[in-house]
């Protein structure tokens, strides 16, 4: 046990260092920008610093509203996406449908296929049914889009759980439902965590759908940030993007801490 946790710790540290190196580079630039009054090329740091833009951002309630909207949308999207994926993924995993390939194609399709026309179309449909300029419209669009990868991750998770573990419980007298909640679900928790983090982060950062469906009444944080940087205000955009990172980090830490502890103490026991 001892050695096991040391290995785990080492692995964690390595992963964190890797993530930091990949993230810190761009982050340092953003942090510097958020405090810059004047920053002309080729100077490696701004010539003059100021807190003005941080003040400006918080003085306008807009930013906080956008942030709250983004977090709310992301949380509800995670909940819906999990609730819909869970039974479907379980079915796909246990009844050996060739779903993995289909999901993979769906998963890759947005990369090959422009999202813009899809979301513009969706926005016009939503406009007709009163979901445009409405938080629920964005949530619906996000849930639909994120379903592909949450299904993919969770199907893989269920597939990795040997069917014998379920049969052993059934053999001792557990009903299907009992088997699911005492054996399958607890064992799937790590995969569910991964899936939720993925969906949360994706929803928090999603721009296109949020822009077209949210307009003209509501703006999520990425939309606000985009608008700000379009006004050539690099500093405001930087401040918002820093603020945007915070809920994501919090979500990851919380879900890891809370659900892992629960998991280890034997959620299924």
């Amino acid at each position: 046990m001892k050695r096991f946790s040391i290995w785990k710790l080492t692995l964690k540290v390595v992963v964190i260092i890797l993530i930091l190196t990949l993230m810190v580079g761009p982050l340092v630039g953003i942090v510097l920008w958020s405090f810059a009054r004047r920053w002309y090329w080729p100077s490696p740091i701004p010539q003059e610093f100021t807190l003005r833009f941080w003040h400006d951002v918080f003085a306008q309630g807009r930013v906080l509203d956008s942030l709250i909207l983004s977090v709310t949308v992301a949380l509800i999207t995670v909940a819906l996406s999990l609730a819909l994926s869970l039974p479907a993924a379980y079915g796909f995993a246990r009844y050996k449908l060739p779903i993995e390939r289909i999901l993979l194609i769906l998963f890759l399709m947005p990369q090959a296929f422009p999202q813009l026309p899809v979301f513009i179309n969706l926005a016009s449909i939503f406009g007709r049914i009163g979901l445009k300029g409405n938080m629920w419209g964005i949530i619906l669009a996000h849930t639909m889009a994120s379903l592909v990868f949450s299904l993919w991750i969770i199907t893989a998770t269920f597939k990795a759980i040997p069917v014998e573990l379920e049969q052993a419980a059934q053999n001792l007298g557990a009903s299907r439902l009992k088997v699911f909640w005492t054996i399958t679900f607890p064992l799937a928790v790590p995969g569910l965590i991964a899936g939720s983090i993925f969906v949360f982060l994706w929803s928090m950062g999603e721009f296109t759908a949020a822009f077209f469906i949210g307009a003209p009444f509501i703006q999520t944080a990425p939309v606000l940030m985009y608008t700000a940087s379009m006004g050539y205000n690099m500093q405001i955009a930087s401040v918002i993007s820093i603020i945007l990172i915070i809920p994501s980090l919090l979500f990851m830490i919380l879900i890891e801490r809370y659900l892992k502890a629960e998991y280890i103490s034997g959620l299924g026991g």
Binding site: E164, A168, I183, L187, G266, L267, G268
Partner: peptide, 11 residues
């Protein structure tokens, strides 16, 4: 079961 099928999340 041949491979025991013990539940890893339980004591």
């Amino acid at each position: 079961f041949q491979n025991y099928a013990l539940w890893p999340h339980m004591t």
